[in-house]
Design a protein around this nucleic acid. Structure first.
Lengths: 340, 340
DNA sequence: CAAAATTTTAGGTACGTACCTCAAGTCTAT
DNA sequence: ATAGACTTGAGGTACGTACCTAAAATTTTG
């Protein structure tokens, strides 16, 4: 059997109360007594039964996901995954809620973060572009005792803030490599479509993509990014324009996580002589597009894994526990028709 | 707050003891009382606190992984993952051990399974080729009250036996598609190297691979499989022979999970004019080969995920709980240099 | 209708830990 | 030496559930 606090007390030659004080960093214990207990912990290989501890504390974890308010399918999928994760984690008394934010209003995000009550929320996963306001608000949250992680987007604020998501530079490079290999000796230009290049993720993906194409595929030329601003009409217009000025389009890389509108437009415009198309994220739409050969490959990150990972990391920080890095590493997945 | 058994008892208008009998399927409760309690469960949305229940029961889960005795790197990685998983799951009183088996001796495997004591082991994850003996032994284990899952290899015995691993037909198809696309218009033959084609996984991979190549890449021809039987010398010999008779080799697909020896031989033989090489599983060796461009792509399954998934499934079956399918689905991953 | 069988209640203890109080012990400084 | 501070011990209750016993209530059976 695993040693308990009783065994610890006996081994260290102290009372249960003292063991408890040491384990929970309570004051009023002399240093050498602390050492004695720690030695006993070492010797017995005592592992605190977190589950019993949380039961005794009546503790539960309440986390919050702050997600952008757009209605795209990737986000809808994320919200669904949070619901599923709540089911799994219910047994461990973990519960996550979702709040939506205006992505382009850092002030509002900062205000919302500022208004969070440590009594109500234990940790927040924030999916928002980096900005000084948000960074400062995060720092204040941590001071208040609310943990934060950057979720999918955004940057690493400090040691207290993990990033849950993929390396977007590598994701872009992966897209670039696949584009290069799929095109083989075909020469031509590559259209890049993004919602906005102001987002750090899009920028990094593009950089990674360019790096590979420029280094290894000199017969391909990457065009300047077309920005859709999420507007279907604008998307149709700029892609058509892009085509007129650049007829020899061999590939299309859709950088942003919402691929639906760009894909629909591209599919319509290139009725035949379809270029190689690579997009991001798995949604019902992109999945169907992959099945029907409209898209050649998807670069994705598993939304379920993202959500569970964020929740596990937030919980581990609450418990002052280490995480298992290998489990929390979010992989850059490559999806083709065959491994859907 | 989440409702407790007390709330349940109050709501159903019965005592705690009766609630307990209903929850744990103990005898001595009239059907209409059972119904009353179940209605209260529905109404309150009662979720049993599994953690408190296990604490009260003093229950722990002891699982066993039966793995082949070969010394390849993929297996070594698996064993390491089991160690890591033990760390994670220690808090939930789950512990997994490893035993090694002779892969080609179904009799011995069956004997070992037969000797397991339900008092000592709660569940077994078995990585072994399918055989009637093993199938029967599994059935007897389930009767004894020990749960089983087929792990990576082997088949689905019954409803009581989940399979933890990838769809090998789809994995082969994925390899086939990548091979076809990477080769582009290059014509030639494709060398298939396997440890043995007697293993169902290798067979399925090959079938999936052939299906794609034959359907979509008529300028490529897949050669008969070369079987290494895990013997380095034999590997070198048959690959050299294969080359002599088939000079126009455009691609190499290494089907088995141990790619090291075949890769070393292939790399040596094709000093220049390297074919497209696709292999399976991520190991220190294959990872290095990918980085140094000796390999073009790896089709992998995440060993950490495999192990954790097997353990979660076995635990869920013990608890008579449902699993979250989306979390337990093992993905067929595509690894290239850029998304390692 | 009474006896027997079944069902239900009421109360307890336990799991491993947290957290509380009160008393007793041990220092340190004057 | 003694007050005041700090340190430790002993005991308790609690978390949500499991599981046990004895007795009470109800139903079934002859």
């Amino acid at each position: 059997m695993r040693p308990t606090t009783r065994d610890l007390a006996a081994e260290a030659g102290v009372s249960l109360a003292t063991v408890d004080r040491v384990l929970n960093d309570r004051p009023g214990v002399r240093q050498d007594t602390i050492d004695k207990v720690n030695q006993a912990i070492e010797k017995l290989g005592f592992i605190r039964n977190v589950v019993a501890a949380n039961l005794a504390r009546g503790k539960s974890y309440r986390f919050l996901f702050l997600l952008p308010r757009t209605g795209d399918e990737f986000l809808a999928g994320l919200v669904a995954c949070i619901g599923e994760a709540n089911q799994i984690f219910a047994a461990e008394m973990i519960q996550a809620d979702v709040m939506h934010i205006h992505q382009n209003d850092p002030h509002q995000i900062a205000n919302l973060l500022g208004s969070l009550d440590p009594q109500q929320v234990d940790g927040v996963a924030i999916m928002a572009p980096e900005s000084p306001q948000v960074r400062d608000a995060k720092a204040r949250l941590i001071e208040k005792g609310i943990d934060t992680v950057s979720f999918i987007a955004g940057q690493i604020t400090s040691d207290h803030d993990d990033f849950v998501g993929i390396d977007n530079h590598a994701a872009g490079a992966t897209a670039g490599r696949l584009m290069g290999r799929f095109l083989g000796r075909t020469a031509g230009t590559i259209l890049i479509i993004a919602e906005t290049m102001l987002a750090r993720d899009s920028l990094e993906r593009r950089l990674g993509f360019d790096e590979i194409i420029n280094a290894d595929y000199p017969h391909l030329r990457v065009l300047p990014s077309l920005e859709t601003y999420g507007d279907p009409e604008r998307t149709a217009r700029i892609i058509s324009n892009g085509l007129l000025s650049q007829p020899a389009i061999a590939g299309v890389y859709i950088v942003s996580s919402e691929a639906r509108v760009p894909l629909e437009v591209v599919t319509e415009v290139f009725a035949r002589d379809k270029p190689v198309i690579i997009a991001h994220e798995r949604t019902p739409f992109t999945e169907a597009a992959l099945r029907s050969n409209q898209v050649d490959a998807l670069i994705t990150q598993d939304p379920g894994h993202l959500v569970r990972s964020a929740m596990r990391i937030l919980r581990a920080r609450r418990d002052r526990r280490e995480i298992l890095a290998s489990q929390e590493k979010i992989r850059i997945e490559v999806l083709i028709k065959e491994n859907l």
